[in-house]
Amino acid sequence: MNYTIHQLQIFLKVVQTRSVTKASEELFMTQPAVSIQLRNLQDQFEIPLTEVIGRQLYVTDFGKEVAKIAERVIQELENINYKTQAFQGILTGKLSISSASTGKYVIPYFLSGFLDEHKGIDIVLDVTNKSRVIESLKNNEIDFALVSVVPERLEVEEELLIENKLYLMGNTPARNEGKPLIYREEGSATRMAMEHYFESREGKQRKRMELTSNEAVKQAVIAGIGHSIMPLIGMRHELMSKEIHILPMMDLPIITKWRLIWLKGKRLSPVSQAFLDYIRSNKQHILDHNFSWYLKY
């Protein structure tokens, strides 16, 4: 057997993404390069690791077992690096955070200084929808989750970061009643807040348009397709350039809180505790330095 660590890393990424194309994008490699390494790994085994049916790639049962072993091998290699740095007096380890999609406008500013101070820490940041964030937290797959609404029936502890302000927005200063409302997908906290707001004032409406990301909603609003209740925090440049306007509506903004949450009773790793301590000590400075425009609204 002459397979390499690099080949195992590539194979594991293919298994995780179920796609050579997606794996190549995440690994910053060309698709042919990923295919070649995948084929070279396969040549080491008489049993197929993957199979393609139609245009869909499937991982065989044998491939799944190899992937599990590959994941453990790669984790142990990372542990060697962490141990080496720890013996040099450097705080090391991995910090994993899952964030609701709009949280991408918040969490990087709370991570930047911390990572500058601790060069031995690796960060895994998964930006996804609220349902997936809560699932990852529930399964104890992550250290922290960044959410704007505390999940029900799940005991957690929290650290508040910043207000989440939701306004109705359009591409003109006044609401055009003839244009539809644009909603986020099911499971989105913004979707739930928007539904509650309009149903309590204008009654239940047919949802003519539903988009699966805040960015997609933003672009639809800019294009004049309709109006949407959206988080202010991702709209700085669009508001300054007047591509988007806040529409005057009663009882807006809707205000929730962006918060870092973790399972109650969870024993935090040294890296996780250090990050929490950093946030508590530097929160006000981070807000003043990075969010002064936002705090004025």
Rank of each mutant, 00 (worst) to 15 (best):
I134C: 02
Q56W: 04
N171T: 05
R208D: 02
L263K: 15
F114E: 12
P231S: 03
I222N: 08
G170C: 06
Y278D: 08
I97N: 14
L232T: 03
I254S: 06
L268G: 01
A86T: 06
F87H: 14
N171E: 10
R39W: 05
I97E: 10
R153Q: 00
T172V: 11
D251L: 15
Q284L: 05
Y167A: 03
L95P: 01
Y58L: 12
E141W: 13
S292V: 11
P108N: 14
K207L: 14
T128C: 05
V156Y: 02
R208I: 00
Y109T: 07
Y297L: 09
N282V: 02
I134M: 04
E186K: 14
V106Y: 10
T60C: 11
L181F: 15
D288P: 05
K22Q: 15
H227V: 04
L295G: 05
R184I: 01
M192H: 09
R208T: 01
I123F: 10
L111H: 01
I47T: 15
I47F: 11
P151C: 12
V20I: 15
S136D: 10
W262Y: 14
K130L: 01
R280Q: 13
S99H: 06
Y109R: 15
T4A: 06
R132F: 11
S272A: 15
G234I: 06
L95N: 01
Q9E: 10
Y297E: 03
F144V: 00
I36F: 07
L166S: 01
D116V: 04
I286D: 02
S188A: 12
S99D: 02
S98H: 12
L27A: 09
G103A: 08
L95T: 00
G226E: 14
I254V: 13
Y82R: 14
N139K: 15
A274K: 14
L137R: 07
S228R: 05
V127H: 07
S228H: 05
W262H: 10
K68P: 07
D116S: 14
L125Y: 02
E157L: 02
L268N: 09
Q273L: 06
A216Q: 15
D122F: 09
L287W: 08
V271L: 00
S24L: 08
I121Q: 01
Y167Q: 05
Y278M: 06
S35P: 05
I47C: 06
Q42N: 04
R267H: 13
K266E: 01
Y109S: 13
I246S: 00
D288T: 09
V150P: 01
K204S: 13
E157A: 10
H227A: 06
E159V: 15
I107P: 04
N79H: 13
A70T: 12
K130D: 09
E202T: 02
T21Q: 08
F291Q: 02
L137E: 08
A220D: 02
D122P: 08
I53R: 15
E46T: 14
Y183T: 03
A100K: 13
T190C: 04
F114K: 09
